[in-house]
Design a protein around this nucleic acid. Structure first.
Lengths: 210, 210
DNA sequence: CTAAAAACCCCACGATTGGGGAAATGACAC
DNA sequence: GTGTCATTTCCCCAATCGTGGGGTTTTTAG
């Protein structure tokens, strides 16, 4: 009778050494057991169906479906499933979107084992904890005004290095309109020009390269 | 007589799960043994001194000393030491600098176990192999003209979002001079404006955020 | 339904930036 | 010394960009 209150886990990450390490680290805890591991979103969903784990540990950058897309799909099919994102991305927007899409908590890969273990137990217990470092970033995100749909399109094109004229053509609007959206963007991001806006967007995870 | 031709390894990475996973994966090979693991550069150097491993597996992003700095320090003290960088960074400049600083090969964390194992054996045998994906990026780097010291300073300030005037003040030169350096930068990077240059520099690892 | 808010659109002006070229200095290699 | 290269300064000029303001449409809340 090992696994009476045992927490059954699914690890999703495309790095083999990381998956192996998580398995080793978690199986070392007496009340935890990794029942499966997946290298991408499709595999994660399939394995969730067959194993019905208690908690999923999900990376954000995955080949094919992203971690956020996989989280949304899992929460759609299994509304009660518990997902903890674990990643190196520490942009406030990454954190916000992960929690928004249904994740219960958010861990960074350089955290201590005890912290990770503690968060997993808290999520399993239905009282999810958010590490202080992550909560701080989330607070940053909350202080930033919401971008409009157009502003998101504009900042996306900006990080692709497009000029105002190119954005205008691409969006089917006038160049003056693009400039208006950029103005709003600069104010909301607290920057003064397009270069700072592009860097800010990358740094905070509002837009990703590739 | 297990370890006759056994390869003794040191793993350097700040992510605990990754270190554990590498240890598990490599110790699974009959001819390999992880003799120590470090979470930062200082620890890596200390452990190298006491264990004299055959090959070091080194991450690039470490707290304190970077992977490149640690590699330089190790190669200085132990000119024959063999180092393989293993990281998620795939910018051509990251690869170039790692090999430049004395690393024998370069692996990406999402590669297959067989590929990693094969590269470690080849490095141990004194005939280092570079994975095709990495070699391709390196070729990209070779097609790009070398930046001058000033151009590096300028692109660094550019990624910090500074204006021409601010760069001029910061560098103690005229604004016209800054523009000249920017012109050279645009030509060498194959871009047309500062925003594209900043993005290019980040994407290719010429400058890193933080 | 109406009023307010938000999003979207446009013009005009000054500031900043980018593109062409030219040239002087110093360091360094041949 | 000669030649190459990095660094620096300057010019002119055109294009792009950022900021002021004003205006219209769409959404949302009551």
């Amino acid at each position: 009778m090992i696994a009476q209150g045992s927490i059954r886990l699914l690890v999703v990450d495309d790095h083999l050494p990381f998956r192996l390490g998580m398995v080793a680290m978690l199986n070392d805890e007496p009340d935890m057991r990794v029942v499966a591991d997946a290298r991408d979103g499709m595999e994660a969903i399939a394995l969730y169906r067959t194993h019905c784990p208690d908690v999923v540990l999900m990376d954000l950058r995955l080949p094919g479906m992203s971690g956020v897309e996989t989280t949304l799909a899992l929460r759609e099919e299994f509304p009660t499933c518990r997902i903890i994102v674990i990643t190196t991305f520490d942009g406030d927007e990454d954190i916000y979107r992960a929690l928004q899409s249904g994740a219960q908590s958010y861990l960074l890969k350089d955290m201590l084992a005890e912290e990770m273990i503690g968060v997993i137990r808290s999520v399993q217990a239905g009282k999810p904890q958010i590490p202080a470092a992550v909560a701080g970033r989330l607070a940053e995100r909350m202080r930033r005004p919401e971008l409009t749909a157009r502003e998101h399109e504009v900042v996306h094109l900006l990080v692709r290095g497009r000029s105002n004229k190119e954005m205008a053509t691409h969006l089917g609007v006038s160049e003056e309109t693009v400039k208006t959206h950029l103005k709003g963007l600069f104010v909301k991001l607290g920057v003064r020009d397009r270069t700072q806006a592009a860097i800010y967007a990358l740094q905070h995870g509002i837009v990703h390269l590739d």
